[in-house]
Amino acid sequence: MTVVVRTVARVLFPVALAFGGYVIMHGHLTPGGGFQGGAVAASALALVLVAFSPARLKGKKGLFSALESLGGVAFVVLGFLGLGLTFFANVLAGAGGLFGQPVPAGPNPGELNTAGTLPLMNWAVGFKVLAGLGAVVLLFALFGGEDDR
């Protein structure tokens, strides 16, 4: 691509990645969550793939695979945490420990240290979606078209 596209991509890549992380991190407070934030972060990867050559990310396939598996396993393990009650029971909510702060009822701006297993699940799903969509985009860029490369 031209130098304009590459410069804009260089500027926008960290911004898009940070915004994806923000959407994942505040998934239990603001609109959005793991899926949406992961998709935003994967769009940053797509930007890099469009602006630069896909060979730059070719060696990262193992990393994507590991991240996707890690996210899925973490999600299921967090589900199994609540097995004393039911599968996916939120044992950490309101317990006082990690993400265990109770929430006052009614409209309030919210605290980051709340909602129990939900933020952890958001991170797991976010990494899973980021790695999965990143792998899809990378595979399309590497093997998709044969015309202009």
Binding site: G27, G33, A93, T117
Partner: peptide, 14 residues
């Protein structure tokens, strides 16, 4: 119950 301000996330993940 879930201590989440975002009810949609509470439904989707809990």
């Amino acid at each position: 119950e879930v201590a989440a301000n975002n009810a949609v996330t509470a439904i989707v993940f809990d």
